[in-house]
């Protein structure tokens, strides 16, 4: 069953249209990847889903409910959680305060202790640095914290924008391993990536976005074999 569905969404900024009738759906328990070149509209799509910009046409459905026009915080409250591009941490706050902020939705508050333990086990570095101001950590640690903060929100759907951007390959591999564990634990996720190869390697199903439209979609394994995808995004 599709837990999150985007139906024929058009949107953009001011006069500039970015999305031209984009549709995609995320199945429960699946790791979906959304890949595409820089400027294809991936981040705009996420912003439209989260409500920081409104869809011009089309709709966003979560759990059978039209959530197109709900404010961002209401969506987080329902369990639609985004780990935004550029991490967007609370840089003046400590690591642990950031994690506590992640647990703001009412549905997450009862599980703060359990989830803290869970993310500290997943990212022991964060536990070591729990009292440090998040803005003073390295890029990789900040990205861990951004993901951990998202998990603290007790998401039903977790979307992660550009996890790998600006990080050393070995760190990226580590983070992807952590996501794999989350998926195995049953979390529904969407990975939005410019790193097409990695994203397709880890996900179950993929969408390729180009010029604000879904160009091609299918099981990730098939996409990785696809002639067009290989030449356009994988460089061979």
């Amino acid at each position: 069953m599709a837990i999150l569905e985007i139906r024929d969404v058009t949107s953009g900024y001011g006069e500039v249209q970015i999305l031209w009738g984009t549709s995609l759906s995320m199945e429960e328990g699946r790791l979906t990847s959304l890949v595409g070149a820089n400027g294809a509209g991936k981040t705009t799509l996420l912003r439209t889903v989260m409500g920081s910009i409104k869809p011009w046409q089309g709709s966003v459905w979560f759990n059978g409910q039209d959530i197109s026009h709900l404010p961002t915080h209401a969506k987080a409250e329902m369990g639609v959680v985004l780990v935004p591009e550029g991490r967007q941490l609370f840089t003046d706050m400590s690591v642990e305060e950031n994690l506590e902020m992640g647990a703001s939705p009412k549905r997450a508050r009862a599980h703060v202790a359990r989830n803290l333990e869970r993310v500290y086990e997943m990212f022991p570095r964060l536990k070591e640095r729990r009292a440090q101001k998040s803005g003073t950590m390295s890029g990789g640690e900040q990205q861990m914290l951004a993901v951990a903060r998202g998990i603290m929100a007790e998401p039903i759907v977790l979307m992660i924008d550009e996890l790998s951007l600006g990080l050393a390959p070995v760190l990226v591999l580590d983070l992807f391993q952590s996501l794999k564990k989350l998926k195995d634990a049953g979390l529904t996720m969407m990975l939005v990536e410019q790193n097409v190869q990695m994203a397709l390697a880890i996900s179950d199903y993929g969408y390729v976005l180009a010029q604000g439209r879904v160009e091609i979609d299918g099981p990730s394994r098939e996409l990785a074999e696809n002639e067009h995808v290989r030449s356009a995004y994988l460089g061979h």
Binding site: M101, P105, R149
Partner: peptide, 8 residues
Amino acid sequence: NAAELMGV
């Protein structure tokens, strides 16, 4: 923006 994303 981040606060909104966390449900605030």
